[in-house]
Design a protein around this nucleic acid. Sequence first.
DNA 1: ATAAACCTGTGATAAATATCACATGAATTT
DNA 2: AAATTCATGTGATATTTATCACAGGTTTAT
Lengths: 197, 197
Amino acid sequence: MFDIFHQYILQKTAGKASLSSKERKMIQLAFIQKKLRKKQYFLQEGDVLKHHGFVCKGCLRMYRRDAKGQEFISQFAIENWWIGDRESITSGKASKYNIDALEESDILLITKDELEALSKKIPAIQTLVQTVQENNVIATQNRIHAAISFSAEEKYLDFLQTYPDLFQRLPQQMIASYLGITRETLSRIRKQAVPFK
Amino acid sequence: MFDIFHQYILQKTAGKASLSSKERKMIQLAFIQKKLRKKQYFLQEGDVLKHHGFVCKGCLRMYRRDAKGQEFISQFAIENWWIGDRESITSGKASKYNIDALEESDILLITKDELEALSKKIPAIQTLVQTVQENNVIATQNRIHAAISFSAEEKYLDFLQTYPDLFQRLPQQMIASYLGITRETLSRIRKQAVPFK
DNA sequence: ATAAACCTGTGATAAATATCACATGAATTT
DNA sequence: AAATTCATGTGATATTTATCACAGGTTTAT
């Protein structure tokens, strides 16, 4: 698992920084390795989340359930993505979210404090954390715009373009839930929408 | 203006850090003061945004226009809020957003680099930046959930509860635009929805 | 002070999307 | 291998929300 993470760091910091063997050791001490079977929870609503998760292999989703039991997906995470309920991690409050595995997955876990400590000691990690955070802010800004301004069809086409890899990997009902439309509507749209631009 | 900013820092860092007069001077050198008249642009689509904005007084909005000229508001900012298109600031690309003043406003401007430099030199600023970023991530996570899972009425009630101060201050059509519903729908909902819980 | 622009409410109607119900084929479990 | 669960498609219908049009009151600009 750490091989994947080390490679990820090099890629994200684009050669600006590399890792000494000492640094590698520190990283291996700070993270916990975890394997999840399909459908296994990483976080269940009501629990306090202590760790950020980094996906080395597989696919997870984070979602909330409303009063009627309907699920709304806030986030997916596949290889080289981070996942976690930041509110619960930061505030120590019980989470309103669930996170579970859509495929058998390997993840690396690290607490907020450990990650902060690591990022102070290892420049590559600091760069990484900042880059990830920036990208997240930008992606989120775009997602909000899509959510408040796009029609169902536009949301679908936008998703297709932004996350082509997720699209072929996930069941359609999950994508519908992420987009805030019903699976039926997505199915009908797919039949008639032409994804060329 | 700097009085307001200094007070804001003390409040956000909750006494964990205070400012020496040397630090205050550094802050005053790093920021640019700017006054905006009502309707004046701080950012116009197509331009590259160079500065983060901190609102000392007044109220701004950030929005995008679609092909039909309809406006969709991504963000508001009143006193003690930050505003800016992070994508443009970070990447140096032309912005798709506009930011303008809804009231006469006083803002402080700082470039990305200056802010990073300041936050390395002044612990209070570092804490501040981190806190603001965390809160932003959390607020955004909640907003996405609202956008994909709530009905128009629920969006309205949620906004009312989350931002009561914004609610009385902003024209309803702006709030509708922020929520991703039409002003007519908002008007009708307000007539019948009872904001008790 | 008057004109112009802006904001909200409301009716009539249209369009988009959700809901419910069922069928079929694929994947997973026993 | 059979049984069960899961995923998608599709029809019929209901509900939500948007669109268009206009009126009245308020604020802003000349």
